Amino acid sequence: MNTVDFIEAVGWFGNIILSIGVLPQVVQTWRTHDVQSFNWLFLLMWALGVLFTFVYIAYNDMVVGKYQWPLWLNYLVNIIATFYLVWAKYYYGSLKKS
């Protein structure tokens, strides 16, 4: 395995771990509907951060013509998961107040 292939494998491995890392929180929130411990500022900053970073990566990849698929995987999974957690905080938080 040459250096480029090794670095590509490291990138895939790291981004898969980051993508999977958010899933236990999503599953727990889906099952329990418990969102009290989520901080609004953290969730909104995280959601906007992953969205804007993805736009930056996607734009640069399209300009250069070389796509960094591990980063796309990581950021797409995190965008979906994080926006679900934002929705859950709003929706389940509203139900608890009623």
Rank of each mutant, 00 (worst) to 15 (best):
L51Q: 08
L51D: 04
Q25Y: 03
L23E: 13
Y84Q: 07
V26W: 05
G14C: 04
Y92V: 06
T53E: 01
V4C: 02
L23V: 14
W40C: 05
Q68N: 13
P24M: 08
F13G: 15
Y59K: 15
M62C: 09
Y92T: 04
Q28F: 05
L51K: 03
F52V: 14
F6C: 03
K96Q: 15
L95V: 10
W12M: 11
I20R: 04
V26M: 09
Q36M: 05
F42C: 02
N39E: 14
I16Q: 03
Y91I: 05
N39T: 03
N74Q: 04
I16E: 08
A9M: 08
K89F: 03
G21I: 00
L95K: 12
G14D: 01
Q25K: 03
L48M: 15
I17V: 14
W40R: 12
M62F: 14
V55D: 01
G93H: 01
W69Q: 03
T3L: 13
F42R: 02
W72R: 10
L44M: 12
W87R: 11
Y67S: 13
L18K: 09
G11V: 06
L18I: 09
L71N: 01
M1K: 08
L73T: 12
V10N: 03
V35A: 06
T32P: 06
A88H: 06
M62N: 05
Y90H: 11
Y75M: 14
A88K: 01
L71Q: 00
V22W: 08
Y91V: 12
F42H: 03
R31G: 11
M62L: 10
L48Y: 09
T82S: 10
V86M: 00
L85C: 00
W12R: 01
G93F: 00
V63C: 02
K89D: 02
S37G: 11
N15I: 07
G93P: 02
V55L: 11
Y90S: 11
S19G: 15
V63M: 04
A88R: 02
T82I: 09
L71I: 07
L48G: 15
A47P: 00
I7Y: 07
L41F: 14
L73M: 14
L85H: 01
V55G: 02
V22Y: 11
P70E: 07
V64L: 15
A88T: 04
D34A: 14
G65M: 07
K66T: 07
P70F: 06
D61N: 15
I16Y: 00
A47Y: 04
S98P: 00
A81K: 00
V86D: 00
G21V: 00
N39F: 09
S37A: 14
G21R: 10
N2I: 06
T53I: 08
N74Y: 05
N2C: 07
T3W: 12
V4F: 06
Y84V: 11
L85S: 02
L44P: 01
M45E: 03
W69T: 07
Y84A: 09
Q28R: 13
S19H: 10
N39M: 12
M62G: 05
L41D: 09
V10S: 02
D5H: 11
T32Q: 05
V35M: 02
N39P: 05
Y59P: 08
